[in-house]
């Protein structure tokens, strides 16, 4: 699914990632843990090139997306991202937040087909047998479909009644659940989570983790940076420990938590698992 090969990232002289290699398979749930400032966010943000890697390769959908010449926007449409601070669009209602990207992509496709049809109609003048033009939907149909899908997703998290309000009226937990289904609306191959519960009040952490668990059960591929060790133990099939820009340990959760080998990891776990 994603093959990270010797990924490096520095900001000026500051080397944040020093050669990270990781292979994420379809259906994998990889949890990334590590001390604050160790480069976890930077690593995650390099995966969809929100930060441009300064070295190495990221192979996704048969392309090296670390190469600046690829059209990153197309690849990002297959890679969801969920942020610590939700980042719902403040000027859009809840349902519009979910519809935005699907409508954008489908309208783009429609415009492309229209262009192709125009050229077909020209070249058909010189053909013996006419080539059939592409079927074109309408803007209205695209919106209706996207709205239907968005309402279904809202139903899944029990927030249909919030469809037409603005995000500022939602609780933190509701915002994050909307943000998660917003990324689902694009039917992504993989979703990246950067500390999705760190900005939440404690009583709201559970509802977000539940939703993520249900995605895991459906076989969604996920890469998750989190401090929720219980969640990692229960849901991950691989846990990696990053410190000073390197992967120091990578193991299934039983082994990772039960029998850690790296001394720094041991130290870290002793601190967080009191």
């Amino acid at each position: 699914m994603i093959d990270v090969i010797n990924l490096e990232k520095h900001f000026g002289d500051h080397k944040v990632l020093r050669g990270i290699s990781l292979s994420v398979k379809k259906g994998d749930i990889v949890v990334v843990i590590g001390p604050s400032g160790s480069g976890k966010s930077t690593f995650l943000r390099c995966l969809n090139c929100m930060e441009d890697p300064t070295g190495g390769q990221i192979i996704f959908r048969d392309a090296d997306i670390a190469d600046p010449s690829v059209n990153i926007n197309v690849h990002r449409q297959h890679m969801g991202m969920v942020f610590q601070h939700f980042n719902l669009f403040n000027n859009k209602t809840v349902v519009e937040n979910i519809m935005l990207a699907p409508v954008y992509v489908k309208r783009k496709e429609m415009r492309k087909k229209k262009r192709k049809n125009f050229f077909l109609s020209l070249t058909n003048l010189f053909r013996k047998e006419e080539v059939k033009p592409y079927q074109i939907t309408s803007k209205k149909r695209i919106r209706e479909q996207a709205r239907g899908q968005a309402m279904e997703l809202l139903g899944r998290i029990g927030l249909e009644d919030k469809a037409d309000v603005y995000p500022s009226t939602l609780s933190g937990g509701q915002k994050q659940r909307v943000a998660i289904v917003r990324s689902l609306a694009m039917n992504p191959d993989v979703i990246l989570f950067d500390e999705p519960t760190s900005a939440l009040d404690p009583e709201m952490v559970g509802e977000v983790l539940e939703l993520m668990k249900s995605l895991a059960e459906e076989g969604m591929t996920m890469v998750i940076v989190t401090h929720e060790m219980g969640f990692a133990k229960e849901v991950a099939n691989r846990v990696i420990f990053i410190d000073e820009g390197k992967i120091l340990e990578e193991a299934p959760p039983e082994e990772f938590f039960g029998n850690p080998k790296n001394p720094r990891l041991k130290e870290f776990l002793a601190k967080v698992l009191v």
């Binding site: 929100m50 690849h75 990002r76 969801g80 942020f83 980042n87 694009m186």
Partner: peptide, 8 residues
């Protein structure tokens, strides 16, 4: 960030 991450 959210817009760009979605592929806009």
């Amino acid at each position: 960030e959210a817009g760009r991450a979605m592929g806009l």
